[in-house]
Write a protein that binds this DNA or RNA. Structure first.
Lengths: 327, 327
DNA sequence: AATTTTTATTGGAACGATCATACGATAGGC
DNA sequence: GCCTATCGTATGATCGTTCCAATAAAAATT
């Protein structure tokens, strides 16, 4: 008969012959309870199969022990996996700190802002994790204005630099390492295939390549993100004779790889970005983003190095250095 | 000064000069309130920026309006994307019905069982969504025993067939369609590349191929799931001369494709399963699982076609027919 | 031995909503 | 004009926990 109603703290108190508060103490701060009574209470808890009701506790403490994160609509592309990995990692690290992760979905900015308002108004979460921040991010501005604790996966690219905590991948460091590696292994002419101007992270990744190239020169191409687009862009270039190619994404890298194979240069060293399964399957080198580190960093920003409750945050940032995977 | 404490239902009642209950009625069942008082109350709500506290409501109603779903650890392979898409879709459909989705992470079965117990004991969720069910699934058994409402993405492969609601992809229908298509377009000898015996969904997918082949014969290979494994398995086969190949996964299909290219038969028609980004990028046909339909089906099982609260479920199943994407 | 401090436990209030029930006012039936 | 329905609103209890202040008992100080 598993339908029996769950035992409450009052039931345990009666069974053990103590007050409710003492039971609560045994559960939450056992150290202040005398050993003999603690054992008595623990036996009663055991006997009744008592487990504190999370809802009641949250109402009383005004802490939900829950953080929210947006799950982006499935984009269908090669990328997007990085965010999924990030959510995976966030869930695991959060569980280790006794936090739950709540998802919300939004297709548009307006919808997301509405969701953020709802989550904050109803007191559903202690903190929010934003992903994919952009220059002058309206979500960040809104949360700041409302005083909702949050941290972002992504830099505050604009001027509000110091206004909230964030963690991001150091894209420039990634492409710098990739370029340096190719310069050493392949030759002087290492080209770059990036996105059209206007993308913050695109600029960041291109900067790494430029810095590593120094005085050397090599073609710099752009294409919208996508396999076909990358293939098209590189097709025109190959006759120019390059020694290697650094790309802003795995999708572009795969396109470039296909173009290289078609042009009879299957051995052309190419490096992508994101280390997706597709790149792995094709044996293409890539820059691995380590979203697990980002997740850990975000939680540390929100709750301190060890804490299990959301605390006041310093608005500081953390750049995680990605890792080059050579294949 | 956004630090002002949030207004409660009592504040609104005082402001509007009515009782708490009337405010509650305006929020939850406006139709039973006289128009004049309703307007008065709505004005007060507006003025104070009142929003009901979700925690208090949940404690009183004993409904969390939350469902839990496990997020698998990132597997790193080509597959796994289907589950992510499913979670995406589930979150969106749930939001449309006023439900939230809570994530939990687990690396082992034991850990998952522990999490399930905790979620149930603490009354954190109204229902649980299981993914990747197997024969004699211990999680399903546990939840049934404890009386926790749940539905599964995946068939109850064993004998407990009718014990709980489930939704699954009709894998056999997918491979049947793929095989039929190749028989029509490519020729009589359509081979199958599956997994080693023991996988329920593997058997299911192979069955579809067999059924479509009927009296015709063609090689049937197996390999562990993976690009390299698929490539190896097909390398030996190609001299045999086949007209097409149906695979149990995109990873195998990609491996097969690479083997075909190396063997000088790049045009060999191959069909994968899951329609992952990698298959798309390489122009390989694939069977698309439509996890969005599965998500909608799961919610319907839990809450009825229109409902927004978890109701008693009939233990019935639903098979979703996948779609063949020809490239 | 009287006083202060510390330790262990208790009882009531509070968190913020909804439920069940009771009440007053208006309307309808004869 | 009396009795009964119906409607709209109000009151108090309740969900299950933790906070707060108070108390009783034990230990330490003078």
């Amino acid at each position: 008969m598993p339908e029996r109603k769950a035992a409450t703290i009052g039931d345990v108190a009666r069974e053990a012959g103590v007050s409710r508060q003492t039971v609560s103490n045994v559960v939450n701060s056992p150290s202040i309870v005398k050993e003999s009574t603690r054992l008595k209470v623990q036996a009663a808890i055991e006997a009744l199969g008592y487990s504190p009701n999370a809802l009641a506790r949250r109402l009383r403490t005004q802490r939900t022990s829950t953080i929210a994160v947006k799950l982006d609509p499935y984009s269908g592309g090669v990328s997007g996996v990085v965010l999924d990995r990030f959510v995976h990692a966030l869930t695991e690290s959060a569980a280790a700190r006794g936090l739950r992760v709540l998802l919300y979905a939004a297709r548009t900015l307006e919808e997301e802002l509405r969701h953020l308002d709802e989550l904050a108004d109803a007191g559903e979460v202690d903190a929010i994790v934003l992903t994919g921040t952009s220059r002058g991010d309206r979500r960040a501005a809104r949360l700041l204005e409302r005083g909702v604790p949050f941290a972002a996966f992504g830099r505050p690219w604009g001027t509000e630099a110091a206004a909230h905590p964030w963690v991001d991948i150091d894209g420039a460091a990634g492409t710098r390492a990739a370029t340096a590696d190719l310069l050493e292994r392949a030759g002087e002419r290492i080209a770059f295939l990036g996105w059209p101007a206007g993308s913050e992270s695109g600029n960041d990744r291109e900067r790494g390549w430029r810095e590593a190239m120094g005085e050397r020169t090599a073609p710099r191409l752009t294409a919208e993100d996508g396999v076909a687009e990358g293939q098209e862009a590189v097709k025109a270039l190959l006759p120019n004779g390059i020694d290697g190619l650094v790309c802003a994404s795995d999708a572009l890298a795969i396109g470039a790889h296909l173009a290289a194979v078609q042009a009879g240069r299957p051995e052309l060293p190419i490096v992508g970005f994101d280390n997706t399964a597709a790149a792995e399957a094709l044996g293409i080198s890539s820059v691995e983003q380590l979203p697990e580190r980002v997740a850990a960093g975000i939680l540390e920003m929100l709750m301190g190095p060890e804490g299990n409750k959301v605390a006041k945050q310093d608005p500081k940032g953390l750049l995680v250095e990605p890792r080059l995977i050579v294949r």
